[in-house]
């Protein structure tokens, strides 16, 4: 039931002088417990697809549905708060919050009491290999790999069924890439979450259960 479905979706960016069809009649069913990799050249529509799956926008045509409900018909803020977590290439952590506060923030906005939220955040951070000493620091004082792991810990906090990652290893070295992919893989396999990663990196794709190849806004291949 908790499948995330893209049903014949098209998305058109409407500019002042011209419109661009970024996504063309894309259809796919993403199921829990699987690790998906979306490959494609720049401009192939990968990130647009991810934005629509994240409920940041709605398709121009077609529907994105989760749990049988179209993102057009539901409260998308609630959808993002309850069901989807997004991990970005440039981490997008809160610079003025400590590592622990960053990881606990989704719980804060869920009105979970601070102590309780912090305890969950500590557990998640430990899970992704962040030490207690690092938890008290500000993100900028940590490496890119560590920041990305904090972003993953933040994604875990809200307990979302869907983890969307936009080039999560784009700024990382090989060792950190391996580490992050391992964690994402484990989220799919061990926690039963649906993990969808947009990437250029073929090594990442190799770890995926399903690889979707996109070109010119269309799904051109899958394995």
């Amino acid at each position: 039931m908790n499948d995330l479905i893209a049903d014949n979706i098209t998305y058109i960016y409407k500019g002042k002088y011209q419109s661009v069809k970024a996504l063309k009649e894309f259809s796919f069913r993403f199921i829990p417990g699987k690790f998906y990799a979306i490959l494609g050249a720049s401009g192939s529509g990968k990130t647009t697809l991810l934005s629509l799956l994240a409920g940041l926008d709605v398709p121009t045509e077609g529907i994105v549905s989760f749990d049988g409900l179209s993102t057009k018909d539901i409260d998308r803020d609630e959808y993002r708060m309850e069901h989807v977590s997004v991990i970005y290439q440039n981490y997008n952590l809160f610079a003025h919050l400590t590592v622990m506060e960053n990881a606990a923030y989704p719980l804060y906005i869920h009105n979970v009491p601070k102590k309780e939220a912090d305890a969950i955040a500590v557990s998640n951070l430990k899970k992704v290999g962040i030490t207690e000493e690092q938890m008290k620091r500000f993100p900028k004082t940590l490496s890119g790999g560590e920041q990305q792991r904090i972003a993953i810990a933040r994604a875990l906090a809200s307990g979302s069924e869907i983890i969307l990652a936009d080039e999560p290893t784009g700024n990382l070295d090989t060792k950190n890439t391996e580490n992050v992919i391992k964690i994402l893989h484990s989220l799919a396999k061990d926690d039963g979450r649906c993990v969808i990663v947009v990437t250029h990196d073929l090594d990442v794709a190799q770890e995926a259960d399903v690889v979707l190849k996109m070109s010119d806004g269309k799904l051109v291949d899958q394995r």
Binding site: A54, D77, R80, M81, N92, F94, Y105, P106, I109, S158
Partner: peptide
């Protein structure tokens, strides 16, 4: 602005 965008992405409502 990015911080607010992240808040919005995390599901915080615009009015909040």
């Amino acid at each position: 602005i990015k911080e607010f965008a992240v808040q919005r992405c995390l599901g915080l409502k615009r009015r909040r």
